[in-house]
Design a protein around this nucleic acid. Structure first.
Lengths: 339, 339
DNA sequence: GCCGTGGGTTGAATCGTTTTATCCGCTGGC
DNA sequence: GCCAGCGGATAAAACGATTCAACCCACGGC
């Protein structure tokens, strides 16, 4: 309710001095400073962020537009971002696009008006948002794209080599003797999904068989339908291993398979992607291709800050992390004696 | 880069007219309107949110301060909030206090400066933040506290009857014949945790035994230590059922118990709280006390909007939802023949 | 006695909107 | 022929901070 003016009046100084007390307290005589601080306390004054930002031109918050907060993967990325932001005492605000291109568009529009210090985003799809993202960065708001292997040319990007991830998955499964492997995931317009499948396909031998089970989305529910599809196949046609687009799908597949009497990994091995914490806690602890989650967020945020500091002198960079395979029970033959 | 002024100049009108085109397009002659719109498009003009809000005094975003985004429970609450916000085309921004009182304090401070339309929060603890929250609402920013059974007197609140939840848990387990039950959770300074334990304790018979395993926090890791603690007890002293502070703990307990050769529910039954989606997908599908997650968020948001509309005429309300028990495998005796 | 210096303070300009009172030119009614 | 009314546009006053040039005063040096 009370503005800087009333503080000034109550303390018997000019608004400029109050502002100085707030922003460079050492520039003002101790005695006046205390008088001003007393006035501030007395009125319960707190400064108006909008006015501040209007004048200053820059905000102290960085925005994260997450593709799907329901996926723990993003939460972990987020904590990497928060760690990096803490260094400069910036606040992180999170928006959820929920994989909805329209929502994402609205959010970006709103961010364009709000002008945060920078934006971290995993775009819903490569094509559509390019221009909108580009507009942001042409407005002086740095944008870093993360978890997206598309070469994002108008800004920095942090991604993980998903083709390699697919290859690791394929090699691991072949090593375990699997010759008929399914890939459950989609949509293939999402580059990551496409890459993972392609990586898998690339390491299969000429006589190996690959069954693709396309899914409209990557979550537990679609995973279940994939599991059902697999369970319903005649045993001869059934793949002996399923590589899933991410861990949520794997969890769904796992649940449905065991529920229908198939044993994991005995009858069908299941391999996930991301290595979220819940993967290890699953019915059968899930093998998974791990992405360095916090690190993705952390380095993306650092690149953002760097760009925000450097301004126009900045050179965009593209960081690519390597995934690694984490082996758990769901792809090793059970050590328990079979009945 | 370009402001409303340049648009006005390019279109050959005054800034007031441009503002009208933006905010009440029907108040301006079609011909001028088009000219202005052309100018806007040509310059790539987008309005400055800070200036806008400075003048308007009110923002169009509501802030959610979540206690722990890593708990899927909050994500579900969040989607309820988003659903409600969509109606008025408000944006929802999320902040993560991570159960850290200092962080929460900083966030609230920042929100006080930023003046969102309203704030939804699950405070880290009842005591400390009362005043800060109160300051917000005394500044005209409505605050709704959710998922917290403390009677929050300075604003609306939405909560779930946790004592009842504890009772339901206790009744269910007793019905299954359990007479020695453990409660794994903490810290007990958190009202919800305390209530759940008390509810459980209230329905135990005089000869029943309750073992409390206090935990510093509710997550998978602490759940594991609880599981280990239980597994290490001599069989005679071991509770036959564990009621967990939330599903994350239950997941940890479950994992550790099975890993150490104890069978769930054969040797020890496990009961969770919240009924997050991962509960159903666990090693042994988890019985759990369900809270109406989306609904909590939805009704909290509606109350917030109501208060924001009504202004000072508003009467605070307290909504309390009822939990219900969802029975799955982890508390029913296995149908599989025991070996 | 004058001048330079420098810490401390002030006043005014500025950021980009929204909003309100005012104005302009016309038409229609009396 | 005058005035009310009206659609449409404008100019100027907010909103609440930051910043910068100017100023004031006391002090020391010469």
């Amino acid at each position: 309710m009370s503005s800087i003016k009333e503080v000034a009046r109550l303390a018997g100084v000019s608004v400029g001095t109050v502002s100085n007390v707030l922003n460079r307290p050492d520039m003002v005589a101790p005695e006046t400073r205390e008088r001003v601080q007393a006035a501030i306390a007395r009125l319960g004054y707190v400064r108006n962020g909008s006015a501040r930002q209007l004048r200053a031109g820059r905000s102290r918050t960085i925005a994260v537009v997450a593709l799907d907060l329901a996926n723990p993967f993003f939460i972990d990325v987020l904590s990497g971002v928060e760690a990096a932001a803490q260094r400069d005492k910036l606040t992180v605000m999170v928006f959820n696009s929920s994989k909805d291109a329209d929502r994402e568009a609205r959010l970006l529009e709103m961010l364009e008006e709000q002008r945060p210090l920078g934006v971290l985003i995993t775009p819903v799809n490569d094509r559509g948002q390019q221009e909108r993202v580009q507009r942001l960065s042409s407005r002086g708001i740095p944008v870093v794209v993360f978890d997206n292997s598309s070469r994002f040319s108008h800004g920095c990007s942090v991604s993980v080599d998903d083709v390699l991830g697919g290859r690791l998955a394929g090699l691991h499964l072949r090593e375990r003797g699997h010759r008929h492997i399914a890939f459950a995931g989609g949509p293939f317009t999402v580059r990551q999904v496409e890459d993972r499948r392609d990586g898998l396909a690339a390491v299969l031998g000429p006589d190996d068989r690959l069954t693709v089970i396309p899914l409209p989305d990557l979550n537990v529910a679609t995973g279940r339908t994939a599991g059902r599809r697999i369970a319903d196949l005649p045993a001869a046609d059934r793949p002996t291993a399923v590589f899933c687009g991410n861990d949520l799908v794997a969890l769904g597949v796992l649940q449905e398979l065991t529920q229908r009497g198939l044993r994991v990994p005995g009858d069908v091995a299941v391999l996930g992607y991301d290595d979220i914490d819940f993967a290890a806690a699953a019915a059968v602890p899930l093998s998974s291709v791990r992405q360095p989650r916090e690190q993705i967020g952390h380095s993306a945020a650092l690149m953002l800050l760097e760009e925000a500091d450097q301004g126009s002198a900045h050179q965009h960079r593209h960081v690519i992390f390597q995934p690694e395979l984490v082996e758990r029970t769901s792809t090793t033959h059970s050590r328990l004696p079979s009945p």
